[in-house]
């Protein structure tokens, strides 16, 4: 499903705003991580260390994306602090809280919480900003709605994933299917957003 927004991006990249390059990097990262995880899963290897690395990279890319998008709306130094603090949090959690071969509940939940906050900030910004801004950036609404829905829905799963992993395969599969549905809606909304956000 992630192929859809990537294909959309490739199709209309010439007419997209510069803010989207970070989104494209995010999509490429997500697609390659999914591919590597699938290969390692097939090889019956534990692929959770990839998730730890992915979480940090995903957060840094999306943070930069929101930094550009929310320019002038939020404190600049807060973004710099987060860029430094989040990787430190991940390292500390690997060292003291979770094993690298276990699901990274803590950093994943913190990431989700922060990205929920940023996507809410976007909606606050479009209401607070002037009219020109509002009509120009309508396509971003879809993308932010996708992130807000995905991270809001998945935050409980991220926080409780250690417990979920101890459940029976059947229940575990059901819960992760809901997560997949949330991811699918994210990719669909990103694709719609990209299409709508074509620069006129």
């Amino acid at each position: 499903m992630i192929i859809l927004p990537i294909a959309m991006f490739m199709f209309i990249k010439r007419v997209l705003y510069k803010e989207f390059k970070f989104l494209f990097i995010y999509l490429i990262l997500a697609a390659s991580t999914q591919l590597v995880s699938f290969i390692t899963w097939k090889m019956k290897l534990n692929n959770l260390p990839i998730l730890h690395l992915y979480t940090v990279l995903e957060f840094l890319i999306l943070l930069t994306y929101y930094w550009v998008l929310l320019k002038g709306f939020l404190n600049k130094s807060a973004f710099f602090i987060l860029i430094i603090l989040f990787p430190i949090l991940e390292i500390l959690s690997i060292l003291f809280v979770e094993n690298i071969y276990q699901y990274n509940n803590l950093s994943r939940s913190v990431e989700a919480l922060l990205l929920i906050f940023f996507s809410i900030c976007w909606f606050v910004k479009i209401v607070a900003e002037d009219d020109d801004f509002r009509s120009q950036y309508q396509g971003f609404n879809y993308i932010n709605a996708g992130f807000l829905l995905y991270f809001s829905g998945a935050i409980t799963l991220f926080a409780c994933s250690s417990f979920v992993n101890e459940m029976s395969v059947n229940l575990k599969m059901n819960i992760w299917t809901i997560h997949t549905l949330l991811a699918v809606q994210l990719y669909i909304l990103i694709s719609i957003g990209l299409w709508k956000a074509r620069a006129k």
Binding site: R134, L148, S152, G153, L157, C160, I175, L182
Partner: peptide, 23 residues
């Protein structure tokens, strides 16, 4: 877990609808 996931998603959806309608 499923209820919490759905509840949060619904709250987020509601927020999105309100924000977009206001916009």
């Amino acid at each position: 877990i499923i209820s919490a996931m759905l509840a949060f998603a619904i709250i987020a959806g509601g927020f999105i609808i309100i924000a977009i309608r206001y916009q």
